[in-house]
């Protein structure tokens, strides 16, 4: 995982990887950002939880409605007031909302 490459995404403030349990493993922070490794660790834990919940919902939705196209999930994003965290698998990127390119970020995470 090349976190420096992830930092080239539009509006990237931080890039990080985490374990299956959500423990922060590696990270890069943009100089001047108010994000801290502690916040990234918390974000990583929430992202693991959110991806698990979204997978459960996708599975249930497909079973109940007969619609397809949700599974397997390709990522999750939480959109905050000023920044969004975009995650897929065991890697995440925090991007400024103003400059965010969600599609490019999801694609980059999927390719990583």
């Amino acid at each position: 995982m090349d976190l420096q490459k992830m930092m080239d995404l539009p509006g990237a403030l931080a890039a990080f990887t985490y374990s299956d349990k959500g423990d922060l493993q590696s990270h890069v922070l943009r100089e001047g950002t108010e994000l801290t490794p502690q916040v990234l660790d918390l974000l990583a834990h929430s992202c693991v939880a959110n991806q698990a919940i979204a997978s459960m919902e996708a599975r249930g939705w497909e079973a109940l409605t007969g619609q397809s196209g949700f599974q397997p999930l390709k990522g999750f994003s939480m959109v905050g007031l000023e920044w969004s965290v975009v995650v897929d698998g065991n890697c995440g990127v925090v991007v400024k909302n103003r400059d965010a390119d969600y599609e490019a970020t999801f694609n980059a995470l999927q390719a990583a």
């Binding site: 108010e34 502690q38 916040v39 918390l42 196209g69 999930l73 959109v79 007031l81």
Partner: peptide, 24 residues
């Protein structure tokens, strides 16, 4: 919870979320 660790980091209030499926 994030806010209790570091105030005013630009997360709150959350505006929304995205779930990226395979086709939807």
């Amino acid at each position: 919870i994030f806010d209790s660790f570091a105030e005013n980091i630009g997360c709150r209030p959350v505006q929304g979320w995205i779930v990226r499926g395979s086709q939807i």
